[in-house]
């Protein structure tokens, strides 16, 4: 799915009224402080900006943010209002999407992982949205299923939970490539259970981890969709997962997707946090991100 934000700028529709004949899309970005464009309404904005050197540089190449939007008066133009409306519609639809079952867990199993599947206590999306606590509990059938799940040779060090969260689209797109990147970084990965969870919140990893007696949980979950990012995946690391853990006791890595954090970097950060949690015997705000993984 391509959002309007990701279009090359050349594809953006022209806005002739605003542009006053300018065809260079770069000028779309900057031609909004000229004398005919609402300085009466916004007298504090200098006219000189319209001609400054930055007008030659397209801000849109530097960020996926909606920078450089034209003005009509002080308002957005019709094109940009409708772009925003379309992106909102895409995000709304992502909230109501579902995981690709059964092909999704089958694909994970083919890669050699131990795979299970559970459901939360929220029976449908509407209930899920209004009753988050149900998304943090296992359905009675799923709790029973996990308790009698295949007997593991030892209690697992780690359990990975893949949860639909607020964007099944994110899970469908990114969970398996991220698992691929994680595999070489996790010792004894073949002994790590991967549990696919429907109608799930982050904290569903707590009862899952408790039942499987895991020392640590990694929850990969669809984040709430943004306009430019209906498919963003988050990862939450919790030491000694059990019901009652607070958010301050987890570490989070956010925004895993094509235009955000790449799989390799995300996997390195997850592996680092797992090692730190094991070393310190805790997770949460006491652990800081690996300084070596930071920006220059």
């Amino acid at each position: 799915m391509t959002t309007p934000n990701e279009k090359p700028l050349q594809d953006l529709p022209q806005t002739p009224v605003i542009l006053s004949g300018a065809k260079d899309p770069c000028l779309v970005s900057m031609d909004r402080t000229g004398s005919d464009l609402g300085n009466r309404e916004a007298p504090h904005i200098s006219n000189e900006a319209a001609t400054h050197p930055e007008a030659k540089l397209d801000l849109r190449t530097l960020t996926p943010a909606r920078v450089g939007l034209a003005r009509t008066g002080s308002s957005l133009t019709t094109t940009d209002v409708l772009d925003l409306a379309l992106a909102h519609a895409e995000a709304r639809d992502a909230v109501h999407a579902t995981l690709s079952l059964p092909t999704f867990p089958e694909e994970i199993e083919r890669r050699g992982w131990l795979v299970g599947a559970v459901k939360s206590a929220a029976p449908d999306r509407t209930t899920y949205l209004r009753r988050p606590e149900l998304g943090r509990q296992l359905s009675p059938a799923s709790a029973e299923y996990l308790e009698s799940w295949i007997s593991l040779p030892n209690d697992p060090e780690i359990v990975i939970v893949i949860a639909d969260g607020l964007s099944a689209l994110a899970v469908d797109r990114h969970a398996i490539p991220l698992l691929d990147a994680l595999q070489p970084l996790l010792p004894d990965w073949w002994a790590i259970p991967v549990i696919v969870a429907e109608q799930a919140r982050v904290a569903l990893g707590d009862p899952i981890g408790q039942i499987l007696k895991a020392r640590l949980s990694i929850v990969l979950i669809g984040e709430r969709p943004g306009l430019s990012s209906p498919d963003s995946l988050g990862a939450y690391i919790t030491w000694q997962p059990r019901p009652g853990r607070t958010d301050a006791e987890r570490n989070c890595i956010s925004n895993i997707r094509a235009q955000g954090l790449d799989y390799a970097t995300a996997a390195e950060r997850i592996a680092y946090l797992c090692r730190e949690a094991a070393r310190l015997q805790l997770s949460g705000t006491a652990i800081k991100d690996d300084p070596r993984l930071q920006l220059p």
Binding site: N5, G38, E41, A42, T63, P64, A65, R66, V67, L69, R71, S74, S75, L76, D80, L84, A87, H88, E223, R224, P225, G226, L227, S228, S229, S232, S254, N255
Partner: peptide
Amino acid sequence: PGSDDIMLHYQSTSFHDALY
């Protein structure tokens, strides 16, 4: 920018909204 927070994934008010 454009009311679309591309990191936090929600819609807030835009620079244009403030001008409005």
